[in-house]
Nucleic acid binder design. Structure first.
Length: 415
DNA sequence: TCTGGGGTCCTAGGACCC
DNA sequence: TCTGGGGTCCTAGGACCC
């Protein structure tokens, strides 16, 4: 941070050759906090933290003024307030963020169909094909930045490069309110002096391991032997880090990745020892997971229970079931069973979670009828309409028979 | 009053099959 | 008479990212 003076900031010099930098990474600056400031203009320029004030909460977002005090996302709120006692804490409004996110993403979609969303506030854009309509990558980046500012009042930073990794790195280096183009033939020169923590996939632990082996910069990783890297981060990690250190990143821009899992988890305000409270929460989470599965038209074949104990140790227990499901009851049965089997019902628990994995599309044994005027109507909707017209009880709830003869209880399948 | 909630990917061991 | 190797699936844990 502290780049407002402009001295340490990487920005694009005039006349840069942007012809190879066809991947853009657009990242909103302090997104949640900036949206809050749109709703609280009187707080502009002050240290603002977005997050809950409760005991176990963490910082969801912080303005640059707050970051000067060492307040960053994921920092425990208690510590944040110790570092910056004068900070203004605002409750998050995820609906608002989603709204602005959609506005911004729509702007991207108008520039190129090749947009890959990364969470709520960033995206990769492949703009190689946008040249004839909107101009070179630099022109497109400038267009996006000005449109985002004009249409949302928010500020974003853009990195342009020939790979995803370098584009993302570039947007980060240019923040806040920046734009950095990295031509392919200048990539290595930019990368090698940077600390290893800038490598995608190198977090705190890996950084420690690499530093323990004398590797401090990306250039060090680039020159390290494969054996050294394999010992430090394993086969796959070694290859990936070595490639990244030379600016090699074969990942393309994908418009939409299919979901691989759906889960919910919750941290209690205080640790819970009462198994009945745990079970109630597991049931609630199971239902939340099931609702999301049904909305997405998915069923899960593996059910995962997650527990975090009072000492922060975390375990997961999973079970793969024969018939994939999208029913809360069914998911709950499995997680409760593995929970009971643990025999740790007296240990204080701080977090419970339920997840469904091995997702597949719901088999389309849909029941319904074709209506001349309205098209296909699902059985439940037909039933609801009939009940509304003729009165509850006039229509006998059907017991639907699946194709292989077993009865499919449909209770609870509707959201 | 230290550590959220949504995810992805990788590793490693064991079971099981050929 | 004491043990190969490849492949896949399942499970648990951990690092990392936003």
């Amino acid at each position: 941070m502290g780049k407002q003076d402009g001295t340490s900031r990487h920005v694009t010099r005039p006349g840069v050759d942007d012809s190879t930098a066809t991947i853009l990474h657009v990242d909103m600056d302090a997104f949640f906090a900036s949206v809050e400031l749109l709703d609280h203009p009187e707080l502009v320029g002050r240290p603002v933290i977005v997050g809950h004030r409760s005991a176990r909460s963490i910082v969801t977002a912080a303005t640059y003024e707050a970051r000067k005090f060492g307040v960053n996302s994921a920092l425990p709120m208690a510590i944040a307030l110790r570092r910056c006692p004068d900070a203004i804490v605002l409750e998050p409004h995820f609906d608002r963020y989603q709204h602005f996110s959609s506005m911004v993403m729509e702007i991207f979609d108008e520039v190129t169909p090749l947009v890959e969303r990364l969470g709520i506030d960033e995206a990769f854009l492949d703009v190689a094909g946008a040249r004839t309509v909107f101009g070179s990558p630099l022109r497109v980046a400038e267009l996006i930045r000005s449109r985002v500012r004009a249409e949302t009042g928010l500020v974003c930073s853009v990195g342009a490069a020939s790979t995803k990794f370098v584009a993302k790195l570039a947007s980060g280096l240019s923040k806040p309110d920046g734009l950095l183009v990295v031509p392919a033939d200048e990539t290595v020169e930019l990368l090698h002096p940077l600390p290893i923590s800038k490598l995608w996939g190198v977090g705190g632990k890996t950084e420690e391991v690499l530093r323990g082996r004398g590797l401090h910069t990306i250039g060090d990783v680039a020159r390290a032997s494969r054996e050294t890297l394999v010992r430090a981060v394993g086969e796959a990690g070694a290859d990936r880090l070595h490639d990244l250190s030379w600016g090699i990143d074969p990942r393309r821009v994908h418009t939409r990745a299919e979901e691989k899992s759906v889960g919910h988890e919750m941290t209690f305000e205080t640790d819970i020892t009462d198994p009945s409270v745990i079970r109630t929460e597991l049931l609630r989470m199971s239902n939340m997971v099931a609702v999301r599965l049904r909305k997405a038209g998915l069923v899960g074949r593996t059910v995962v229970l997650k527990l975090r104990f009072g000492d922060f140790t975390t375990i997961t227990r999973s079970k793969t079931i024969g018939e994939p499901t999208d029913l809360g009851r069914r998911i709950y049965e499995e997680v409760r069973e593995v929970y009971e089997a643990l025999g740790k019902q007296d240990a204080p628990i701080r977090l419970v979670g339920v997840r469904a994995e091995q997702l597949q599309e719901t088999a389309t044994t849909q029941f319904g009828l074709w209506d001349e005027s309205e098209g296909w109507r699902e059985a439940e909707d037909v039933m609801d309409a009939a009940s509304a017209k003729f009165g509850r009880g006039a229509v006998k709830p059907a017991r639907l028979l699946g194709h292989n003869g077993y009865e499919r209880p449909r209770m609870g399948q509707r959201d």
